[in-house]
Nucleic acid binder design. Structure first.
Lengths: 218, 218
DNA sequence: ACATATTTTTAGATTAGTCTAAATTTTATG
DNA sequence: CATAAAATTTAGACTAATCTAAAAATATGT
């Protein structure tokens, strides 16, 4: 069975909505797909006919087992291509999304297997999101320092590499400890400093040296 | 201006027909596109409206300057991706065509620029066909097929004209690939077959059909 | 040169993915 | 619990790319 890029995009969007909101309705899916609810209804019927969805009119819908598998395959392709674009072609992690949106629909499975191999079977993409393996399994946690983690996501501090007294003094000042929740709002190219919002604290700036030593998960 | 994959495929097919046959008619283009002449006529009008074609009904058509540029860009993408698939992912040269047919429609120009860089700006793809550079220029090496080249000289295989899976299978059997060194020892008038010595292989015979498709330089 | 064959175009229909407007079902509220 | 609001679906239409069948233009062969 093969699917159009549009069908694949619907499946991916439904997967992400189910992950984030627990469920998904026609209207919310229409917003996610930048289209109208009527259009979504038509597509739901088509996806049901292809056995990717359970669907009962007016009641709701959810991915079938094979819908779920397809979603994970598309996400796998997307994230492997993002990894390739950043780590092999030298793009910045904020430039690669729209390219990966196209590349994820290239059909060959063998291509993805070989790409995965070529990249060293990475478990996380450049945004820190986990890459499903060949069987659709996800690694759940990843720790990276504040320089490499995505902006505007809630991060939980997991570890601090340099644990000198001087460093800990500074972290205390920022009210940063293990388990602290924070967001990186902005990075400044000039000196690698970063604007952050620590839970319940005012917005502030940390230096590059600090940011490189603070490891978080998403 | 952006184009659908179908439009791009028509432009590419017209370019190749013009190169190989000097001109192209509706019927011949329909065969190349595996569709009907009526469908081709509709598309010709669309491509004319997009200024990729000169078209006069019943009289014929040819690529405009921008049509030509687009064709060369698509061919560039196709051949760079083939190079990537063979030299980075380890595919055989007879496995990559269909994947490249999809990859050539990925839109980002920056992606192609970076891919070109990453691959070391190759001038020839794994089949020996020249890769247009960023400005659409092609390296042309004087190549002749095995029927027209002198006997008993060391020849280097540069390209293979018929790139069907059947042909590539046969060439693999002979251990002939791009860059292979060989000599033509003798030609037989009866059926146009040729006795050849492929580098490190025993002396063997190839048919006229094969000889006509293998292009070498001295 | 003129009838016939070939090529090309037109006309009208089909499918996928989309739209708007209207109708229907479910949910929430007074 | 009746009714208003919200969500969802249906109906009918549009565009791109395709088809078949038929008409029109061009090319060919004695």
């Amino acid at each position: 069975m093969s699917f159009t890029a549009t069908e694949e995009n619907y499946i991916k969007a439904i997967y992400h909505l189910q992950q984030r909101l627990g469920k998904a309705g026609t209207t919310v899916l229409a917003e996610a797909m930048q289209t109208r609810p009527a259009t979504v209804t038509d597509m739901l019927k088509k996806l049901e006919a292809k056995k990717l969805l359970h669907y009962r009119r007016y009641k709701g819908f959810s991915l079938t087992e094979s819908g779920n598998r397809l979603a994970l395959l598309i996400i796998r392709k997307h994230r492997l291509w993002e990894y390739f674009l950043v780590h092999k072609l030298g793009f910045n992690w904020d430039e690669v999304h729209y390219m990966a949106e196209e590349l994820e629909h290239i059909s060959s499975r063998e291509l993805i297997t070989r790409l995965d191999q070529f990249l060293g079977k990475p478990a996380f993409d450049p945004h820190g999101d986990p890459i499903p393996d060949g069987k659709g399994r996800l690694k759940t946690i990843r720790q990276m320092n504040l320089m490499t983690l995505p902006l505007k996501k809630i991060l939980v501090v997991q570890s601090v590499r340099n644990q000198s007294a001087d460093m800990l003094e500074l972290l205390n000042h920022y009210h940063i400890g293990i388990g602290t929740k924070l967001k990186v709002l902005r990075r400044f190219a000039f000196d690698g400093s970063a604007e952050i919002k620590v839970d319940k604290q005012p917005i502030t700036i940390i230096s590059n040296q600090v940011a490189q030593n603070v490891y978080c998960c998403i």
